[in-house]
Design a protein around this nucleic acid. Structure first.
Lengths: 214, 214
DNA sequence: TATAAAAAAGGTGTTTTTCCTGTATAATTA
DNA sequence: TAATTATACAGGAAAAACACCTTTTTTATA
């Protein structure tokens, strides 16, 4: 029986090894190799056609070259390779980003073994797989029904980062070379835009959305 | 051959299943079951002595009951069980906390399969295992070179958690059934104790030290 | 270039936070 | 038992945060 080849990309060696072993127990699949980050995968792909698999299981948070960048590279240069995101992240914006750059599936790491197997089969044979939450997200996204994604501009992002420090707004104003009143404005706009009540809300939003990393 | 029994605690089902499968390939080990969080483990332990393993592989970041709280519970109630932390975290304070509450080993998730096996053998047979970075950390800590640890009591921890929400101090006072002035006191004490300037500082401390998980 | 939109800044007032200095009381300990 | 410590609470003042509403300046663009 011809098995579909799989490559796993994850910076946590132990996990990629463990998942590789698991995938190898699946009847229809065989792990070609694993990578620690996107750069390693690019190198492998480029070295020989032998190293181009049918499916890539892609983590998102990785050093050097993350899952989004890597997926973008794959779909540009190897359109026949199917990428499935495999992440701990449940953030709408992250999922949408992965799908936008060409991932055809998105699995959370807290799914069951059987779900992973089904997903791999779907992807290898039908070319797509989506969990319910992703499907719903896509529906919402298409129908414009879902939360329209909140986009912060550069200055707002800069402000948010400062807001996560122990600086007062006045001090933030000084650093950003703006009037305290302008900073007041930034804050007020973001309060309504992000739907938070106070500075703690800003901080939490920034952390959850990776604007600031503690 | 009698195998050591292992329990794996990790909120990412796929990962705990994969690691479980891996551990089951180790000659001397056998996975009893896996848990999604500390609460599940406590329930299992409490239900029957059959479900008390030789070794627990413990993730740190988990919902409901995290690795630190869970390890503390285990070492209090089941001193014969050896806990090894298995985390993506490389933070000194987190590692120290895990060791403080009784973990006898600390492994990062980006280690090799063979390292995990060796570590398990060491733990099961000798009762301890430490990677070099942990050993160095302990040396520093013992020689008094490391920062002396800050201990918060239960009510301070409760306050800290509330401080990470968007509640005002007055609202926190209501929830905790204390006078707003008492809450003022808690805050002021923690400001100096944790060496922070304002509420954002409290929030950051709480997050970094896993008192609050965003 | 006229004009609409966005960014920056100002005015004013309220609420919350922060920072003091104290008091009372129960528990701990010398 | 006396002293110490920890906890709960109070008053008041100054600083910061928050809210809302207006005006000026830039920027984009039709």
């Amino acid at each position: 029986m011809i098995k579909y080849s799989v490559v796993i990309v994850d910076d946590h060696t132990l996990l990629s090894q463990a998942i590789a072993a698991m995938v190898n127990t699946f009847e229809k699949f065989k792990v070609l190799y694993t990578c620690k980050n996107g750069q390693e995968l690019v190198d492998q792909f480029s070295s020989s056609p032998k190293f181009i698999p049918d499916v890539v299981l892609m983590d998102i948070n990785m050093p050097i070259m993350n899952g989004i960048e890597t997926t973008e590279w794959i779909t540009k240069n190897h359109q026949d390779v199917n990428v499935m995101a495999l992440s701990v992240e449940d953030e709408d914006t992250t999922i949408l980003k992965m799908l936008k750059v060409g991932a055809i599936g998105y699995l959370l790491k807290d799914t069951e073994k059987s779900v992973l197997e089904n997903a791999l089969v779907e992807i290898a044979e039908n070319g797509f797989y989506h969990t319910k939450n992703v499907t719903n997200l896509l529906m919402k996204s298409l129908s414009g029904n879902g939360k329209e994604e909140i986009i912060l501009n550069d200055r707002q992002v800069a402000f948010m980062k400062h807001a996560c420090s122990e600086l007062t707004y006045k001090e933030i104003a000084d650093i950003m070379c703006l009037s305290p009143k302008t900073i007041d404005g930034y804050r007020d706009v973001l309060f309504t835009k992000l739907n938070v009540k106070n500075r703690v809300g800003l901080v939490m939003y920034a952390i959850k959305n990776k604007i600031y990393t503690p």
